[in-house]
Design a binder for these strands. Sequence first.
DNA 1: CTACTCCTATTCCATTTTGGACTAATGTTT
DNA 2: AAACATTAGTCCAAAATGGAATAGGAGTAG
Lengths: 316, 316
Amino acid sequence: MTRPHLPTTTGLRVVVALAQHGTVSAAAQALNLTQSAVSKQLKALEDLVGLALFTRTSRGLAPTEAGVIYIAQARVALGALETAAARVAGLRSSRPALRLHVLPILGDRWFMPRFSRFVEAHPDIEVQFSTFAASDTIAEADVVFRFGDGQWPGWQADYFLGREVLLVGSPQFIARGGGIAAPEDAWRFPILEHRQTPLHWSDFATSHGIGEVRAERLVRLGYYSLVIRAAIAGQGLALVPRSLILDELASGQLVNPAGLGYMSRNCYWLTTPLDRPRSADLATFCEWALAEARETESASRPAPPAQTPRAASQRS
Amino acid sequence: MTRPHLPTTTGLRVVVALAQHGTVSAAAQALNLTQSAVSKQLKALEDLVGLALFTRTSRGLAPTEAGVIYIAQARVALGALETAAARVAGLRSSRPALRLHVLPILGDRWFMPRFSRFVEAHPDIEVQFSTFAASDTIAEADVVFRFGDGQWPGWQADYFLGREVLLVGSPQFIARGGGIAAPEDAWRFPILEHRQTPLHWSDFATSHGIGEVRAERLVRLGYYSLVIRAAIAGQGLALVPRSLILDELASGQLVNPAGLGYMSRNCYWLTTPLDRPRSADLATFCEWALAEARETESASRPAPPAQTPRAASQRS
DNA sequence: CTACTCCTATTCCATTTTGGACTAATGTTT
DNA sequence: AAACATTAGTCCAAAATGGAATAGGAGTAG
């Protein structure tokens, strides 16, 4: 009705990616677009909406109040489309598609670079991704990657990634702050926290036997990608699963002072529903993913960890 | 991730409109597009999905199983975008936009042709429409048009339209079936029912004191537009609010045999939430809408009805 | 059986939109 | 001040969108 002037789906993906990556260039990379395309899509969408959705700073973009609202709905819309695709894909062939739900950070940092290998090795298995789907849709997935302690009633959980959590920061930033030799030194710096995983810092403290978290400043961010970005930009110290920042560590953008870190109970798990029979395709995929993950974790590690992460699985 | 090949928003609007109107041409009209554009959008979307979303019959289109699934999600997605627009519109100006939620049939048949008049008369009032929004979003609207008996706890309900329900059908179809002189004659024909308003036929029967509904065949359709279309196509008799089919009655596409019909308790209401103060804009709009509706109801009526619909309002 | 009507699919084409490469502009950091 | 981020804007080629017109199919009335 009344020329609805609807946004483009690309526009929606753009704002969501922008919120997640905090910068036009990074979002562009994540979307396989150029910086200029993203910039223009954003402008177009803002013109359509009639309000700025992001405030521009020299370091990147941050959603405005309107942006937060709009982005949330954009995510709902994209989730609906993912759900539609996933459900319909199930109908399409006699061999139903494998439905995966991945967290954004894993999608960007782990799957995107690796998944083509799986497709090459198993061209006959059709895989349907989702990252925005609503929780009721997630329940339909064949594989759900989750973050937590491995306890999800009704789901088998196999350890996937991220048990080894490192204290990291930008090298210049740490040096300027006087360096870090012991765990307590961390409290002299602002610390960065991922909103969905707030336990990391207290776990860090207790695992080093240094009591309370008493950092000078705490910055809470909504996405792991933002935490990593902020750490690189020298805005604070972060606790990040090592496997997510192999590149940054290798290139020296981030350093792990004094090898501080700990083995976290909370990490990424590959979970599969227990109430459905495991198809052969599902088994194939899980095997592949777990093997690749093991390789990721052992690769480019200076020294193997004291305890090797072991696969766990339990029902409840 | 992995080129999501997302659909176009136009594509989504197209499939939703198609489901609602049952025919490419009708959907095109509703969307202000040409038949060819709609046809192509549908094809593009089906190619994308990899499955037919509609089965083509010579009389129009009907959703396939996949179509039903996809369309439902498309509606969710469009609803999210409407919600986004409505919420953000509230932020935009000091004078907040008026948020309306209309039922599809009213949008097509009543608002679309009339609303420009309101805009002309009140160019300074910004109005935000939604037709697909989810129920939690509907709760935020300033005006919700509903179908029912006028009892919605927490909402003031003013009678809007559609109290006068007529028995109608295609003239040739009725003639071929032997004509209709008395209410009971209706049972010799297949009857059409709107899925969301199943009470009409039994109300019709009781209001004429002819006992049970015992038609030879019952066709249940999801949208009023489909009911009207099916009636015109001679697929059965329908009970339709007179105000929705003024054109069809005038042009003779539909006839109302023996003036049969009844005054329904269930009709369209203009409802406004009681828990929020009434803005001046809101009052202006309601006044306009109710006046226009009264005019619609009285216009082109051969004889005024025995009892005039009267505005009602109650709280609970 | 034939003309007529109502539908969809398709072809052609002008127009618009999209997105990439480049350049400009601006602010931060060293 | 220079180097380095970042976003915004211009230009252009390629793709898409959508309208007009056409073709074809399936009922329907006589």
